[in-house]
Each structure stands twice: as structure tokens, then as C-alpha cells.
């Protein structure tokens, strides 16, 4: 019965659990977040992300040529068309760009692979939880 001795050994070990974001669940998550923003509480650091992690998507609008390939391969249809008015000399021209709904994104980075102009990339930001799926932080323009 190996567990009999093992449990006493483990009792004096530091727990394996990562303490992110706090050791115990805070009474109110909003209150905790506010306290952290005010500098009164500290967030225990999460496990660091490895290089080439697939986090929230970055989009450089200016480089985009509006080819729509990302829309074609996106498995969750998180990318949709968007028209942007761009000033070109005197007159305004409507240009095709995309809009990415991060709340639908499945972080496969297929759009990054297919983009011919490399205007899409994946950051290592992963703390994206939100109550509103259409919040400004969750729509990449």
C-alpha cells in the first residue's frame, strides 16, 4: 500500500496547484479585479506561456489588402468583412478590411498561416474572459 507513506510525505510538500489568480477564490471577482487595478491586491502569476503560443489575435489594418482568404479558412467563422473609408488624396475610397470576433475565435491561427501579407499574428495574451461577448476588447478591428 504505497499511498499510506506517500500521503504523509506529500503533506509536507508545497502544493502543486498554481495559485493563479489568487490562493483562494475571492469573495467577488469584480472587487478583486478592482483591487488589483488600484494596486491593493496582487495577482499570483500564471504559468508562463511558451514561445509561439497562440493567444489573442493581432491585426494590422494598414497592411491588409482585403483578399478575404482568412475568412475562407476560419473554422469558426469568427472573421467577417468590414468596409473602411480611407482618404486617398482628395476623395474617400471604401476599402475592404476584416473584423475578428475573439469570442468566437478557436485560436487555431489558420488565418495567420494563410495571410499573404502577414498582417495577422498571434500574441501571447490569454486572459480574455469577459461577461460581454461583444465587448470592445474582444473585437479586433
Amino acid at each position: 500500500m504505497p499511498a499510506i507513506t506517500e500521503v504523509w510525505k506529500v503533506l509536507f510538500k508545497r502544493p502543486f496547484t498554481n495559485r493563479f489568480p489568487a490562493k483562494y477564490a475571492p469573495r467577488s471577482v469584480h472587487g478583486f479585479v478592482r483591487r488589483v487595478q488600484a494596486g491593493k491586491a496582487k495577482i499570483a502569476p500564471p504559468v508562463p506561456t511558451p514561445p509561439n503560443f497562440r493567444g489573442k489575435i493581432n491585426y494590422e489594418v494598414d497592411k491588409c489588402i482585403g483578399c478575404g482568404l482568412c475568412i475562407r479558412v476560419c473554422p469558426t467563422k469568427a472573421i467577417v468583412w468590414r468596409t473602411v473609408e480611407v482618404e486617398q488624396g482628395e476623395k474617400k475610397v471604401a476599402k475592404k478590411k476584416v473584423k475578428i470576433f475573439v469570442s468566437r475565435c478557436c485560436f487555431c491561427s489558420q488565418c495567420v498561416d494563410i495571410c499573404p501579407k502577414d498582417c495577422l499574428s498571434m500574441s501571447d495574451e490569454f486572459l480574455l474572459a469577459n461577461e460581454d461577448k461583444l465587448a470592445n476588447e474582444l473585437i479586433v478591428l
Binding site: V10, L11, P15, F16, T17, Y24
Partner: peptide, 13 residues
């Protein structure tokens, strides 16, 4: 708490 520590966890307050 102790049971949690024996299981390599933090456990509840």
C-alpha cells in the same frame, strides 16, 4: 485542508 495538502493541493480555507 490537511486532506488537500496530502493530495498535493491547496484546499479550501
Amino acid at each position: 485542508k490537511l486532506s488537500a495538502r496530502m493530495q498535493w493541493r491547496i484546499g479550501p480555507p
